[in-house]
Nucleic acid binder design. Structure first.
Lengths: 239, 239
DNA sequence: ATATTGTAAACCGTCAACGGAATGCAACTC
DNA sequence: GAGTTGCATTCCGTTGACGGTTTACAATAT
């Protein structure tokens, strides 16, 4: 077998439902669709120029990501997260990410660290004007995702997959960019990478716990004074 | 609106893909299909007398449950769990279930405890002859699932659903029923219910940690001396 | 005017068929 | 005969259509 080729990575084997999934997820987590809004298969299909098949498949996947709620014979709606859900979400995220830190200490390769570092550098290089809440949330999710990847732990990564989009959605829709956001973000994530590189599990666990806790508190504190569970049940007042 | 009726619960609104999903999951977790075996959509569809649509939907859901691996243009296979995966799975399960215990202490209702207790009682009442590994695994999963339900924590429950079927599968295929299994099972689960009813988080957390750890060790210790990652790549030796 | 019932439109669940990718085998080359 | 190439089959991805459920609205009764 010929192995003199420059090791070109496997060709991406994507299908329509993958594109529909990515597109829908991107729109939802960036806040492009109101929480609780209906997602009609026909509408989405014609808008994306595909049939309903791929759309249905994408919706099932979005349900498992927690971005969409499916009800039999009634269709899909964008999920509505209560304040309570958000707290539970972050408590769980903390537990998972502490585990991820330990596993990353044990299993991460240099390439893993490089990829995580690349995200931080890209953030630093990005122009101030592009730093919208959505963009900032993107960077944050990408960085933390790279930690889960570095953990080389399949069950753990699958569990993270179930939270990731909800966390992403949460961050985008509720983040306030304080003046010191950029500096803090860069400092904390660089520090985390250092700790991981030293491969000392216990300090990593502690730092990650504080980091997740802090990021949650920052978002919560910056919230609108009235967190009155926006009704979002607008269009349908019947029964 | 008339509310003089005897509060009849909402009618089950199941569709074909739900049945296909349940049936496939039951067959796989009970060990009815070899690990690594291909699942052909046409075959499954004709065997269950449905079209490929519901089958595809069920397969996507089974993928998120971790029972099946989908590859684009190549179809589905029953997942093959390495020994390493199983260890990671249980370590993660431990973290989740400790959390579930704490939340259950805080949120569980009497009805929740009753449902969990009913599983234990059903186990005790069941005939010895019916206690196959598959049946025992079913009881165990049902009990622990009821704990997650009692936690009243949606994100946590969704994370558990990502592990549950793999744990179930793992238990069924590797469990050995020692002579003292029945007694131990009943005692430990009754004790856990007591602790939860007392609603003391810290002892619960500790007990659950030990319980999960112990159940993993029992399964691992009872394993065949040679855990040589059964190839399972039988039918296809090409490339 | 309020509540209830009947009706039509909208929408989801399912199916069957078509086209294309992947696999396995045979023919071919060297 | 070992390795490669072409070919046929198998199987997946996608589509468009049909039937049943749900929802919204209008008509009717109280």
């Amino acid at each position: 077998m010929s192995d003199w080729l420059p090791a070109l990575g496997q060709a991406p084997r994507r299908v329509l439902s993958d594109n529909v999934l990515d597109e829908l997820r991107a729109v939802i987590v960036s806040g492009g669709i109101e929480a609780g809004q209906r997602l009609r298969e026909n509408e989405l299909a014609s808008q994306m120029r595909v049939s309903r098949g791929p759309v249905r498949e994408a919706l099932v996947r979005l349900e498992q990501e927690g971005l969409v709620v499916l009800e039999r014979h009634r269709g899909a709606r964008v999920v509505v997260l209560s304040r309570d859900d958000r707290e539970k979400l972050y408590r769980l995220r903390r537990a998972l990410e502490e585990l991820a830190g330990e596993y990353a200490c044990a299993n991460a390769t240099e390439a893993d660290f490089d990829r995580a570092n690349a995200v931080v550098e890209e953030f630093v290089r990005s122009e101030d004007s592009t730093r919208t809440p959505a963009a900032a949330a993107d960077f944050d999710i990408r960085f933390h995702d790279s930690i889960y990847v570095a953990a080389h732990n399949d069950p753990l990564y699958r569990a993270w997959t179930v939270l990731r989009s909800q966390v992403h959605y949460f961050m985008t829709t509720r983040m306030m960019l304080r003046p010191d956001y950029n500096e803090t973000w860069e400092r904390e994530h660089m520090r985390l990478l250092e700790l991981l590189r030293e491969r000392k599990k216990s300090p990593c666990r502690k730092f990650i716990g504080l980091h997740v806790e802090g990021s949650f508190r920052r978002i919560l504190l910056d919230q609108l004074p009235d967190d009155s569970e926006h009704p979002a049940e607008v269009a349908h007042a019947s029964r």
